[in-house]
Design a protein around this nucleic acid. Sequence first.
DNA 1: TACACGTGGTG
DNA 2: TCACCAAGTGT
Length: 352
Amino acid sequence: MTRLGSDEAVLRRRLREWYTGHRRSLPWRETSDPYAIWVSEILLQQTRVATVIERYGEFLERFPTVCALAEATEAEVLTAWSGLGYYRRARMLHRAAREVCARHGGVVPGSAAALRELPGIGRYTAAAIASIAFGEAVAAVDGNVERVVLRLAGAGLSTASEVGRRAQAEADRLLDCAAPGEWNQAMMELGATVCLPRGPRCEACPWVEVCRTRGEHPVRKRAAMRAEALSLAWVVRRRPTREPVERVWLVQRDERESVMPLMWELPETDGASGEPVLRLRHAIMQVNYEVAIFAVEATAMARRSRQRREQWVTAEEAGRMPLTGLTRKVMQRLGWLPAGGGRRAKPDGVPR
DNA sequence: TACACGTGGTG
DNA sequence: TCACCAAGTGT
């Protein structure tokens, strides 16, 4: 941390003023509950604000306190997380909640250093929670902040670790220790709404006059996606009861899978014939799947009894299971699950 | 250090 | 259409 110069004082004042006029109203900005702020930070990891707005309230309603989350089963937590991706976040949040409930009596640790000890809380998230919920003077450097400070400083591209170190140093230097939580959010807000990765809106930036690069910032290219075909079986059977209930066949992924372990999905099928009942595209990581869903006769499954790793489920049961995003999407398209899982089908855009 | 980890919106 | 990429973490 260098001596406070007048330049920094001007920078701080300009961003604070800009933030006052451009701060978005977001649900997690309406609370001072450290647990709720923690949940928002985990949800927001690599996930769009609009998506998090849709799911934040219902997650907190389902798990209102750290101990409520701790007492839930992992399957229940994953069900609430279904469709959000990066499911390890949910597992780690759940484990961390159990630690906090068991070891800290349900009180969220009040410093960045202590938060950092919890699973799923890295350098950024620890700083974000500590500054926003507890007022600790630590700079939270996420992708937005990194982009903002590197453009501001005109730092060139080098190794990832050097970029990270430099960004942290710049953010530390700029931090407004009088109101670190507001400051960190203002920095992120600037990156998220003005200092955009592509097409930065420099004309709207409070720092345009002092910015070294005016938005120029090289971006690293990423690996190309590959295409792959995927055939899934849609196996439905009717229960011969007074009121026939349709059930679909789902299988559970192995716990040793690196991707989406223990989550439920439609079985794959190989020798599918005829026309699929549904075609869709679904991208997971580096793969673009061309997905075809085929109606398959139930007779093949008829003799198989209900096991832990494969079972017939009703639509209602499926809605209470941790489904993969693709399976959730297919079931919604086929009318088996309400679109948006009971949420708004089309979320409103977030105002800039 | 670089990569794996999910998904959906966007230009 | 499709590449880009969103309030990162763990290994």
